[in-house]
Nucleic acid binder design. Structure first.
Lengths: 343, 343
DNA sequence: TTGAAAGCGCTAACAC
DNA sequence: GTGTTAGCGCTTTCAA
């Protein structure tokens, strides 16, 4: 007496389908994978049996035997900040047709956690890995390098990729924003950001920003950091603090759009003249901004496109150089005053 | 001549670690899994060799041999609407210490896609599945039932679960909100929602809402649906449409907080007296609301708690009845006028 | 077009 | 404490 027929709760195997259809396991396997030539009648018998039993193939056994895993590991710092979901959309879009499946892991901006997530993912022998950022522990880098699969580091290109990189230059983005602000005539500029020692992209933007200020003989007149809580609310609070501490500040540069939006709402509440008395800018280009009473200046981080390009590299649809640089567009919105007529 | 030493790019196996350390494969396996007794010196030798080689275990082989997979499938409709990331946080929090790992799949509210995602996940033989909602195709339900693992359907409890369910009654939530609105004296009430035939939770809320209106001898004076785009912006647009079409409307009930927030910003822009002339309410209790100029009335969907409870069931930390009902709290915020003193 | 045998890399179960 | 043996459920390879 065989297990399967006597135990209705037994997990089905190819063997069960084989017995039910009177066809060898090998042929059943071929039918279910659409591989090799199988006669239409055999094919029908097999599909019928599989359907009737409710057979779900065991990918673990399949992967072990074929040494092929249709998984792509995606390692990102967070899901709750509006930027990575869109990257995921781009990745899914491209992977859709390829038979590859994204599997996400979240690190919460912690290098140790990232190392663990990468280790766990690699232990499933995925076909490729997409990892946010260029900064990783030595162990993480070593594991990825050794894995023998395509690795794409995304979001950032200011640094040395392990294999491929797709992203923007955050340093340049910061510089460009500073230049636009200066060109618009603002001079007393403050920075407001979330306190994230491991958010290297935000750090690089700030570095680029200060670099450009320095070149114009300026420096930040104030800076304020916060962490945790509702970004919109934090934006309000930080803005209140800065306006209070440095009343003559004339521009507020935020490390992301959410806190920038909070700041904007605060300034409007207070009846401040935006962008006349004070200008504001954020970063990311999140769609949220479209619903605000006034449109916050920002730079699009090319999230969708980064996801797409990264997935294309993994899927082998693109064979570019090691680095793919994208160029974010500055969207001045309604919170940077137009550049005055002459220079 | 063996493969490994001759090919530095070969993926390492237990055998390689075994040879490098002079210890049997079995003992190496024990060390790497912290299973069984191994002498400290052997242990050290093995760990040393594994580290030096950069060995990453092959979970595929391990899972096949042990018939154990430390994965929990999580199937949700979307990642971009602020509600599921928090559910994920709750799940991760609880799973953290158990050795189990969540793997998410996104369905975009499409039943066909859900079926495929479930099929793919089950083919990896996870230890449990967490699936959003109680409505699934017959095939999906059959697969889940047959899988022989704990299944937890989350978010909703208005219906029959396959195995376990953790969530709130959206029908009751809709009813409660309607009752609060009526008690506050509003009578000309409109509904504004996103057009999502497969968002069964939103549908049930609306049903409960209309039920309670009917009981009070009322019915909706207007309704408006939209889909796609920036929720905040859509909220503004829909609100404009409704206010224009039904000028004497005195309450706007939104299917979620984001469009409600858009509506609130619109009403404030227009200088409408909120909550005097017109009241508003949303649903979810997203933290975003904390940063708005006025706090939108809402009901907390218990997202974090749902994630936690679901994960506890999967992890075997809780063995409750089939349904775990949570009770959302109505938060009147600043957009429902206080109930008048008497009767 | 179909089937039989071997084995993917690991672990359970049992020796020693 | 450590090693040996026999698979896990599939696919590869080769034969018919």
């Amino acid at each position: 007496m065989t297990k399967p027929s006597s135990d209705p709760r037994h997990t089905l195997t190819l063997r069960d389908v084989s017995e039910a259809s009177g066809v060898s396991e090998m042929t059943v396997s071929r039918v279910l994978r659409n591989r090799g030539d199988v006669s239409p009648q055999t094919r029908e018998k097999v599909l019928e049996a599989a359907r009737a039993l409710g057979y779900v193939p065991n990918k673990i056994a399949g992967a072990l035997a074929s040494q092929r895993v249709n998984l792509v590991g995606v390692v990102i710092p967070s899901l709750s900040n509006m930027v990575f979901p869109e990257v995921m959309t781009g990745i899914s879009e491209v992977l859709e047709g390829t038979g590859l499946q994204p599997v996400v892991g979240v690190t919460n901006y912690l290098p140790d956690r990232e190392e663990k997530v990468i280790y766990e993912m690699l232990s499933w022998r995925p076909s490729g890995m997409i990892v946010a950022g260029l900064e990783h522990s030595d162990a993480s880098r070593a594991m990825l390098r050794r894995a023998g699969i395509p690795i794409v580091e995304i979001m950032d290109i200011d640094g040395d990729p392990i294999d491929h990189a797709v992203g923007i230059s955050h340093r340049r983005a910061g510089r460009q924003m500073a230049e636009a602000i200066i060109a618009a005539g603002y001079r007393r500029i403050a920075f407001l950001g979330t306190q994230m020692p491991n958010d290297h992209r935000a750090r690089k933007r700030l570095e680029g920003f200060e670099e450009a200020l320095a070149k114009a003989g300026l420096q930040l007149v104030d800076r304020e950091f916060y962490s945790g809580g509702s970004a919109l609310l934090k934006g309000r609070e930080m803005t209140a603090v800065v306006l209070n501490r440095t009343p003559d500040v004339d521009f507020l540069y935020y490390s992301n759009d959410m806190i920038g939006a909070g700041g904007l709402l605060y300034c409007l509440d207070k009846g401040l003249d935006v962008p006349g008395r004070i200008g504001l800018a954020g970063f990311n280009g999140v769609e949220l901004l479209d619903g605000l009473p006034r449109k916050l200046a920002t730079m699009d981080a090319c999230r969708l496109e980064i996801g797409r390009k990264a997935a294309e590299i993994i899927a082998g649809k693109a064979s570019p150089g090691a680095k793919v640089e994208l160029f974010p567009k500055l969207e001045p919105g309604d919170t940077i005053r137009p550049v005055s007529g002459q220079h």
